[in-house]
Each structure stands twice: as structure tokens, then as C-alpha cells.
Design a protein around this nucleic acid. Structure first.
Length: 857
RNA sequence: GCGAAAGUGGCGGAAUUGGCAGACGCGCCGGAUUUAGGAUCCGGUGGCCGAAAGGCCGUGGGGGUUCGAGUCCCCCCUUUCGCACCA
């Protein structure tokens, strides 16, 4: 039986924190700041214990930092725009806003019952005009700078979601959200010029020391920088038989990372979508036949083409172009594996030194000219294009390469790119895999793009003073048609801000990743209605010191935010280079080996857990069960174990408390204590040392908790031996009112440290216990416990003694024992003598304070 | 296919610098208390041999460096993640 009643305690303290505005903060130049952030939530309806884990990690860090004297900003908000709200509205014949606000209200209640120390007064939701107007404002600044632009392009269209997706949102050829196969479509789209910052984003990765290496690698791959050269091949005129004659003015520009192999470029390959292809078709002897074959390439499944699932095939255009280095004509083919969207959509093919080109050449009987020979290839015969069975892509020496023959593959590229530039047909160039970010969405529930289309003046920005362009209230969602806003005349019809004539509003809305790319700045100054945020506020709070969220955002949100950070910096609104100093990607919570989801029916509802075991037990369990980065498998028995531990803590503190009052500290500070008392003090101080380091900087929440459990175990043993009865329900007036002063003082020190250090994990319980220990003002007034290294250090240690690396004895010796004494004591051990009998002692390794190893032969 | 990370009891995990492997928790076993159950407290719990003392083995597998390896090096296996025709 225990009288630990989490429901009552949690209610009491949650109310008190709210009444006292305990976690609200303002800028205070006199104190060091700490910005602790968890990724804001999509209001899907219900938080599950996976969300809870994310928020717990943040809360433990925030509460600990607060106790250590930091001015901690720990805000929360809602990523409230997006498709599910719209789909739900269509289904329920209601409005997305209704669904969204209801969900927010419910989830907020769930989070509040967990006692997370958020500065709720800074809460924001991206669907509020007060927020998204600054999306629009920023878009206009980017528009002015050419960073936001409109162009027709082939885009990723998800037929299921009926909208366009960014490249980052296409996973294995499918929609990142619904998995439906994505189709290409040609549409006029708005783009943000993230490629302008490609180099900066790449360079910045090198300075993100406190990010997981895995995320950095993913970002590096995504940006995909390739250094190489662009070279133009002049197209020969079509033959006299061709109807249109053709002209010699056309060039094919290729991008290559191996310009050093260009003397071996024996043909050129075009993507089926390359602009010259249609011209070659027109000028062909059999235009209809060629067209048909090209169409077959274009119709290939896009995913298969991108992932290499289709067999490499080509079409000979019958045309030729001049390799500018050799001066010789080479045939032009169209190949199904050449990508239109990368580089120039055309490549020079060097079959001797590129495996794909090699296979292609063998298949179609095209020449293979070796221009690189491996260096110092010992006994191996030189490569021969006629007989080789695979391309050689390694380093070596150039052969058959005119004036560059004899150069190494290390030196040649720079020289040859320079030569191309000098002769006017090429230049060194860098190519990125990263593409501009397409943000147009043909959906309703998002930020309207603040642009007006005028027949006379073209694209006109909405004047700043007319912001926000508010979403019109739509009565009913039918789900018909492409773009809901386009169907609302009151929204679409407007006048041109420049000439005043009738004009149309842009009806696309912004990708919701725009919303999430800067919300962490808005938290710094959430109520500002004159600007996105006051730069002074961000100068104080920014950058985010600790950011916690799922690894699934490694290349979406986390690259976009780094991009926006740079834009804001160029606008003079922030002065740091990177928005998130430290990143922790927390592991998912699984159940039955699978991610929790409504459709699988394996969701664990935090409210249910709270009502049985209390929020504190849930909080403790989720932080204790594994390191934060690892995924965990939910177990009910683990949660019960955490509850059991809290019950033990409750009993320990409430039953010991009456006996602890007024114990003078000096009894233990200078006084001579017997070994059990010294032992408990040592454990107390050592636990403070361990927990402090585990939490900050290591963020090893699980080992911090186990250290506290050890301390509790030790306290139970100590109480057992010193007349404090914890095991049994107290008889009337039981407890330990007559403890010796030293015992009371040592116990008090231990119990108080325990309550303080446990409080970031289980704040309600610890506030209550702290109060019952006679402290007013709450935990916030208390501060983080300090430890004395001299006390934390044992005065006696156990030193293992090995013989030939095997443990044979243990020595209990004073901690500061000398090397010579250790050696002598070890050799005197009977177990050591037994295992060295009849052998010569070759060496005795003594590591002071660690171990002795006797080497006997 | 390429790259990265990981592999430790029945389970989750610990071991901060190359120095007692298995902290802490779950589960299980035993004892106390109890009419009983539950709860609680105390103790035990890697495997094998042994009555015990003790011994041998043991961190995916194999080799190596070292007085000493979960930790460092090489090869292999498995799992997870990322990339996957990017010219």
C-alpha cells in the first residue's frame, strides 16, 4: 500500500505552474539563455506515446537547464496547415479550420496533462493569418530578390493527393505521404531558389559539430555537389537528303566530371526530353518513325527510369556532332537512361572509362577508345578497347589525348577545362543534385501566394500593406477540381496594384514546409504584428541551442530551415549562420515491432497511461527505457516498473522527511563519520556528478535515471540499517523522529539531491516532495545540486588482481595507495600465489587505482 | 550494388580514456510479512562442471596487436538506415 496519488499531485502542480506562469520567459541580458526546441506538431488529432517521448526529452533538458540558472525558452506550436485537414473536411463536409482547431484543442490538453514546461503564451499555429502573413511577407522579399520565381516545369504530381510535390517529398518514386506513384505534369509553378545557397549549405555542414553524422551525410548527398566541366559539341548539319536541311548553329552542351577522358568520347547521348530531340525528329528522314520511338522512351515509367530498373536502350538520331578536343565527328544517340533534369540533359559517352557507356557501346557496336592507362600496371597488359570486358574508371595516365597525353588524371581535368575555356567551347563548372524548391500547391489549406496576375503588367506582388492575403472562408468542400481557390470568384477577382485594371489572384498555396522553415524565429517574438519578428529578440534567443525531432526530417525541414536562416541573414534579421546548434534525432516508439498508427490499431494512448500510472511514471519510463536516439518497443511492464520506482521514492521521502528537519550541515561537513555514513555521502555526491554529466552535455537520459535508481537502492539499505522503517506501513507515529544528528543530516543531503535531480523527469512528484521536505518557493528556487569531488571519491577502493589477464583476487585498499604497496599486496594474495606457483613472474603491471596484472610464465 | 551505423544474459539496455563484462530496469526463482491473494521488503538470477570451495567458457564468427580487447586493426556473417543510372 502506498499513498502515492499521482492524479491529485499532478493536478495540483499543473494548476500551480499555470497560475504562476512558471515557464513564461522574457529576454534577460543578465542571464545566459538556452533555447530548447522540439519539432512542433502536426495536429492530427491525438498525441501518442511516440510524440510524448520527443517532448519528454526536450522537457528534461529544459527543466535541467532552468535549474542550472539558464533563461530557458521552451515553446510549442502547431504545424497546422496541410492536406489531412482538407481531406477530413471533404469527408465530413465541414471546414479544415474546424477540424484543425478541434485537434489542436484536444492535443494541447493531452500535452498539458503531461506537465511539460512549455511557455504556452508563445504558442502559435501556422494556419493563423497572424502567422502566415509573414510567410507572404518573406515570399515577397524573396520575389524582389529573384529568389522566388515562376516557371513552367515538369513537376511531381500526386494523383491521390491531387497536388504537386517537391523533389524532397518524392520517396522511391511515390508520394511521401500516401505512397501513390507520382506522375510528371507540365505546370506553371512557383519556385524558391535554394540552389543559390547550395554551396553555403554544403560548407555549413562542416561546422555542424553537434549534429548526428548520419543527418549530415544525408544532407551532403542530397545537395550532391559535383565539380566538372561543361563542354559544347557543335552539331553537324543534317545531310542533303533531309527535308529541312538543318543548320550548323546548334550546340549540344554536356556536363562531365571526367573531362580528362574526353578524347575517348566516341558518341553523345541525349535525354529523350532534350530540346534538340524534337528538332532532330523534324529533320529526320522518317520523322514519324523516330517520333514514335522517342515517345516510347518518354512513356517509360518514371520511377523505373530513375531507379535504373529499365534496360539501357538507345536510338541513333543519324546526326553527328564534333568532339571539340579531337575535331572528329561522333554520332548522337538518344538514351533512355539519360536524365533531362540533371546537368544539361546531355552527356558525352566515354565507353572505355564509364561502365554505363561501355555497356551501351557494346550493345550497339560503337567504338571504345582507351584514353587512360592505369599507372604502374605491373605485369598487366595495357587496356585495349577491343578486348576489355569492363570500363576502367580508375586513375592513370592520359594516352591518345593529343597535347594532354602523358598527363595524370589528377592534373588533367583543370588544365583541360582551362583549355576549353581558352578556346571558347567550355568551362569548368559545378553541378548540384539539389534543385530549386517547388512550393506551389493546388490546395486550399495553405498560405496563399501573394501575387496578382495582370494582363497588362504581368506578375505583380501584393503590396505589403495589403497583407495578409487571407484565405477566404469556403462554405463547403467538395473535393472537385484542381485548385479550390480558383473556384472562388470573390478571391480570384481583384485589381492590379500597378495599373488598377481587373486582374486575377494567384490561386496556388504554399507548401507547408515554408511554414515550418522559420517558426522557431517567430517563437522569439510571437505576438509581433509589425514584422515577422524583432531581430533583437532573435539576437537574444537564437540560434536554437538544442533541437529534438525525428530523423525523417533530415533532408526536408532541416535543409529548408537552413536555407531560410540564410535568407533572413541576408535580410539583416538574424546574425547567426546556422539555426540549430545541436540536433538530436530521437528514436521512434514501436509496438509489436511496428510504428504506431491508427490503421494498425497499435496506438498507445498517453491519457490511458496517465490515468492508470500518472504522467510522471509515463515520463520516466519513456526516458529510462533506452538512449533517446534509439527506437524503443513499448512494454506495459516497463511502465509499471517506473511507477513502482516512483512509489519507492515517495515512500522513502515521505517517511523519512519527518525525521530530517533541522539537521545541521556542519555535522557532516567537518565531522568524522563512520563508514556507512561516509558511504552514503560518497554515493550522493557521486550520483550528482554522474547525473549532471549524463544530462549535460551528454543527454544520456537513461543512464541518468539508472544512477538515481542506484541512489534510491542505497538509501533503502541505509535506512534499513539506521532505524528508518520504509518497508512496512508506518505504525502510529512511526518513522524516525529520534535519529542521531549525523544520520539525519546525511540522509537529508541524499534525499534532497535525489528529489532535485529527479525533478526534470518527474516534476509533479518532486515538487510535492520538495514541499513536504519543508521548502517554500518550489523547485525553481532551489537550483541544481553541486557535488564535492573530494566527497564523491571513495576513500577505499577495490582493486582487481589478475594473473595473466584472469581475475584471481580483489584487494580492498585506501584510494590513494601507492604502486609499490599495491604490487606487494597483490603478490601476497594466496590466490595469486596459487596461480603463479611453479612459474616465473615475468612482470607485474600496476595501474594505480585501477588494477594489478601479474604476468607469469 | 555503394556507403554508414550497429550486433553484449530470457528481454530493454550499461560499461565516459584499452583495465573487475552484464550497472539499472523488466521477467523469473526463493525468503519474510499475510487467513489467502495482491502489494511491500530482503535475497538470488550469463552458460557449463561442482555438494561446496572453486574452476572453465563467454560481448555475431575467424584472425591479429597488447601484460590486458565489448572497446583498437584485418577478413567474414547478419540487421538497420541512407544512397542507388546524377554523367
Amino acid at each position: 500500500m502506498s499513498d502515492y496519488d499521482p492524479q491529485a499531485i499532478e493536478k495540483k502542480w499543473q494548476r500551480r505552474w499555470a497560475d504562476e506562469r512558471a515557464f513564461e520567459v522574457t529576454e534577460d541580458p543578465g542571464r545566459p539563455k538556452y533555447y530548447c526546441l522540439v519539432m512542433f506538431a502536426y495536429p492530427s488529432g491525438h498525441a501518442h506515446v511516440g510524440h510524448v517521448r520527443n517532448y519528454m526529452i526536450g522537457d528534461v533538458i529544459a527543466r535541467m537547464k532552468r535549474m542550472r540558472g539558464f533563461n530557458v525558452l521552451h515553446p510549442f506550436g502547431w504545424d497546422a496547415f496541410g492536406l489531412p485537414a482538407e481531406n477530413a473536411a471533404i469527408k465530413n463536409r465541414s471546414h479544415p479550420e474546424t477540424w484543425t482547431l478541434d485537434n489542436i484543442a484536444h492535443m494541447k490538453g493531452q500535452l498539458q496533462r503531461l506537465g511539460i514546461s512549455y511557455a504556452w503564451e508563445r504558442e502559435l499555429a501556422t494556419c493563423e493569418a497572424a502567422y502566415y502573413r509573414w510567410n507572404q511577407w518573406l515570399f515577397l522579399r524573396m520575389f524582389e530578390r529573384g529568389l522566388a520565381y515562376r516557371r513552367r516545369s515538369t513537376v511531381n504530381w500526386c494523383p491521390d493527393c491531387a497536388t504537386v510535390l517537391a523533389n524532397e517529398q518524392v520517396v522511391d518514386g511515390g508520394c511521401w505521404r500516401c505512397g501513390y506513384a507520382v506522375e510528371p505534369r507540365d505546370l506553371d509553378q512557383w519556385f524558391l531558389r535554394i540552389t543559390e545557397y547550395a554551396d553555403g549549405l554544403l560548407d555549413g555542414i562542416g561546422r555542424l559539430d553537434d549534429w548526428p553524422a548520419k543527418v549530415l551525410t544525408m544532407q551532403r548527398n542530397w545537395i550532391g555537389r559535383s565539380a566538372g566541366a561543361r563542354v559544347r559539341f557543335a552539331v553537324e548539319p543534317a545531310g542533303p537528303a533531309a527535308p529541312a536541311g538543318g543548320d550548323a548553329g546548334a550546340d549540344i552542351e554536356v556536363f562531365t566530371t571526367r573531362i580528362d577522358t574526353i578524347f575517348g568520347a566516341t558518341f553523345v547521348l541525349l535525354a529523350p526530353e532534350h530540346p534538340l530531340v524534337s528538332r532532330f525528329v523534324d529533320e529526320a528522314r522518317d520523322p514519324a518513325g523516330l517520333q514514335k520511338r522517342v515517345q516510347a522512351f518518354r512513356a517509360l515509367d518514371r520511377t523505373d527510369r530513375l531507379t535504373g530498373a529499365v534496360e539501357k536502350e538507345g536510338i541513333d538520331t543519324g546526326r553527328r556532332c564534333i568532339n571539340p578536343f579531337t575535331g572528329r565527328p561522333v554520332p548522337i544517340w538518344i538514351a533512355n537512361f539519360v536524365l533531362a533534369e540533371y546537368g544539361t540533359g546531355a552527356v558525352m559517352a566515354v565507353p572505355a572509362h564509364d561502365q554505363r557507356d561501355f555497356e551501351f557501346a557494346r550493345k550497339y557496336g560503337l567504338p571504345v577508345d582507351v584514353v587512360i592507362q592505369p599507372e604502374g600496371a605491373g605485369g598487366g597488359a595495357p587496356l585495349d578497347g577491343a578486348t576489355m570486358d569492363a570500363a576502367y574508371a580508375g586513375p592513370g595516365v592520359l594516352v591518345g589525348s593529343g597535347e594532354f597525353t602523358g598527363r595524370s588524371t589528377a592534373d588533367a581535368p583543370a588544365e583541360m577545362a582551362q583549355a576549353a575555356e581558352d578556346r571558347g567551347f567550355g568551362r569548368a563548372a559545378v553541378q548540384f543534385r539539389l534543385k530549386d524548391w517547388g512550393i506551389s500547391r493546388q490546395r486550399y489549406w495553405g498560405t496563399p501566394i501573394p501575387i496578382i496576375h495582370c494582363g497588362a503588367c504581368g506578375l505583380q506582388p501584393v503590396p505589403d500593406e495589403d497583407l495578409p492575403v487571407e484565405l477566404p472562408r469556403v462554405a463547403e468542400f467538395s473535393g472537385r477540381g484542381d485548385s479550390p481557390l480558383a473556384q472562388i470568384p470573390e478571391f480570384v477577382d481583384t485589381t492590379c496594384p500597378s495599373c488598377g485594371r481587373p486582374a486575377r489572384r494567384e490561386t496556388d498555396t504554399m507548401d507547408t514546409f515554408v511554414d515550418s522553415s522559420w517558426y522557431f524565429y517567430r517563437y522569439c517574438d510571437p505576438a509581433n504584428d509589425e514584422r515577422a519578428f524583432d531581430p533583437a529578440a532573435v539576437r537574444y534567443w537564437g540560434p536554437v541551442d538544442f533541437y529534438i525531432g525525428g530523423v525523417e526530417h533530415a533532408i526536408l525541414h532541416l535543409i529548408y530551415s537552413r536555407f531560410f536562416c540564410r535568407v533572413f541573414k541576408d535580410l539583416g534579421m538574424v546574425d547567426h549562420d546556422e539555426p540549430f546548434t545541436r540536433l538530436l534525432t530521437q528514436g521512434m516508439v514501436l509496438r509489436d515491432g511496428a510504428v504506431m498508427s491508427k490503421s494498425k490499431g497499435n496506438v498507445v494512448d498517453p491519457d490511458e497511461m496517465i490515468s492508470t500510472f500518472g504522467a510522471d511514471a509515463l515520463r520516466l519510463y519513456e526516458t529510462f527505457v533506452a538512449p533517446p536516439e534509439k527506437e524503443i518497443e513499448w512494454t506495459d511492464s516497463g511502465l509499471e516498473g517506473s511507477f513502482r520506482f516512483l512509489t519507492r521514492v515517495w515512500r522513502l521521502v515521505t517517511r523519512a522527511a519527518p525525521a530530517l528537519g533541522g539537521a545541521p550541515r556542519d555535522v557532516i561537513e567537518g565531522g568524522a563519520l563512520d563508514p556507512p555514513h561516509r558511504g552514503l555521502r560518497r554515493k550522493t555526491h557521486d550520483t550528482v556528478r554522474r547525473v549532471s554529466g549524463d544530462l549535460d552535455p551528454r543527454a544520456h537520459l537513461n543512464t541518468a535515471v539508472s544512477a538515481l535508481m542506484e541512489l534510491v537502492n542505497e538509501l533503502y539499505a541505509f535506512c534499513d540499517g539506521h532505524g528508518v522503517k520504509l518497508g512496512q506501513p508506518p505504525a502510529a507515529g512511526a518513522g524516525a523522529e529520534a535519529l542521531p544528528p549525523a544520520t539525519a543530516a546525511v540522509l537529508r543531503e541524499a534525499v534532497e539531491a535525489l528529489v532535485l535531480m529527479l525533478s526534470p523527469f518527474t516534476p509533479h512528484l518532486c515538487e510535492e516532495l520538495w514541499e513536504r521536505l519543508g521548502h517554500a518557493g518550489g523547485l525553481r528556487a532551489a537550483g541544481w545540486p553541486e557535488f564535492d569531488p573530494a566527497v564523491a571519491k571513495a576513500d577505499e577502493i577495490v582493486v582487481p588482481v589478475q594473473v595473466n589477464g584472469k581475475l584471481r583476487a580483489r584487494l580492498t585498499v585506501p584510494a590513494d595507495v601507492g604502486e609499490e604497496e599495491l604490487r606487494t599486496a597483490a603478490l601476497a594474495e594466496s590466490a595469486v600465489q596459487a596461480h603463479t606457483a611453479g612459474r616465473r613472474i615475468a612482470r607485474v603491471v600496476v595501474v594505480r587505482g585501477k588494477l594489478v596484472n601479474v604476468v607469469a610464465r
